[in-house]
């Protein structure tokens, strides 16, 4: 379909979402006085058992919260940042007791690992990368990919952690000579990596060899796309993109997520699904997260909206709570919960 046809076909009906499909499980407040910037869930190992924990990040403090039997959360560890503010948490799958964070002002200047060995609550930070960092992503098999620099002066590097988060191995990938915006792992293909670039290309790497396999130019309708998820099926690549810089159209509002199909052999692509807001909702994409076939976004209106990419429409809308706009939304990696945050440090956990 052309973009226009897809928009018409997938415009959700007014009554097609169910606000009841998000149920509040628990909530807590991070008492930090600085602005809340990110939230994440991860497994943390202590006293011989693994627990699903929550990580919260404010500009000057990152905290680890463990669950109590009463559906409450207890802060057990904090890391403080006085020089450069925290921008985001960078979850690294398959590593226990290790949190990575990106620090910077508008752009990432440092990536640090935050460590805490079992039974020892002393604060430890290790500087992993510094420079003009454009993109970073934690990958399965304890890997972290980052790109430093722009255009021809770009270095794309994979760092592999030991199981305990310690000693690491490094490998370079061939840079694409265009600035990388985001990375995405291809689900089920641990040696494949995608990147989106500032000139609307999706690039594909072989992580084992470091080869740059293909550049795929995607529709110029939306600039600066972010790739949230990718999987390969029947010889085709399916990628879920969001469009934070898309302009609002009068007829369809702002496009939030797009499912794109790519033939990696021919570099041809076609959009198959465009997720827009249900009628009656306004706002643009602020930030979002995709897990399996469910996508969630915070809108500039302060509302969170959820789409089922298989059904092709919005399934839940969560308006601001207690007169406070939402500013963060993340899917938990430890269960099917949605983590929703407000700038003042309130974190709400919903079952979807």
């Amino acid at each position: 379909y052309s973009t226009e046809q897809t928009e018409i076909a997938d415009l959700p009906a007014c009554d097609s979402w169910n606000p009841g499909s998000l149920q509040l499980v628990s909530k807590f407040k991070n008492p930090s006085s600085s602005c809340s910037v990110d939230v994440s869930a991860m497994w943390w190992e202590g006293a011989g058992a693994k627990e699903p924990c929550i990580i919260t990040a404010c500009e000057d403090i990152v905290s680890l919260w463990k669950p109590l039997a009463t559906l409450e959360w207890e802060k057990v560890q904090s890391w403080h940042f006085t020089e450069i503010p925290v921008l985001q948490i960078v979850p690294v799958p398959d590593v226990f007791n290790l949190i990575c964070v990106a620090l910077g002002n508008l752009e990432i200047r440092e990536i640090r690992a935050l460590l805490c060995s079992s039974g020892d609550e002393s604060e430890t930070q290790v500087l992993l990368k510094s420079g003009n960092i454009k993109a970073v992503l934690g990958l399965t098999k304890r890997r972290l990919v980052s790109s430093i620099g722009t255009f021809c002066n770009q270095q794309v590097q994979i760092m592999t952690f030991a199981e305990d988060g310690g000693s690491k191995d490094e490998q370079l990938l061939m840079p694409p000579d265009e600035t990388i915006l985001t990375f995405a792992e291809v689900q089920g293909m641990q040696d494949a990596l995608l990147g989106t670039t500032t000139v609307n290309n999706i690039v594909i790497w072989n992580l084992k060899t470091g080869q740059l396999l293909k550049k795929v130019h995607i529709d110029d309708s939306y600039q600066a796309s972010v790739c949230h998820r990718a999987y390969s099926e029947m010889g085709l690549l399916f990628v879920v993109l969001s469009h934070p810089c898309a302009k609002e159209s009068q007829a369809f509002g702002s496009p939030m997520f797009q499912l794109l199909v790519i033939n990696p052999k021919t570099a041809q692509s076609v959009g198959v699904l465009l997720c827009c807001l249900p009628q009656g909702q306004a706002g643009r994409f602020l930030e979002g997260d995709v897990k399996d076939h469910i996508a969630a976004a915070v809108l500039t209106s302060g509302t969170i909206a959820v789409w089922d990419l298989l059904l092709g429409h919005c399934t839940a809308v969560l308006p601001p709570v207690s007169d406070q706009n939402w500013s963060l939304v993340k899917w938990s990696s430890t269960d099917s919960h949605l983590l929703a945050g407000q700038k003042d440090g309130n974190i709400f956990i919903y079952r979807y």
Partner: peptide
């Protein structure tokens, strides 16, 4: 949409592109 618009498809695209790309 038809996958015919995307050209010939290969189930082994990753291996084939890896053998064609410069090392």
């Amino acid at each position: 949409c038809s996958t015919a618009d995307l050209g010939p498809i290969s189930l082994n695209w990753f291996e084939e592109l890896s053998s064609e790309a410069p090392p």
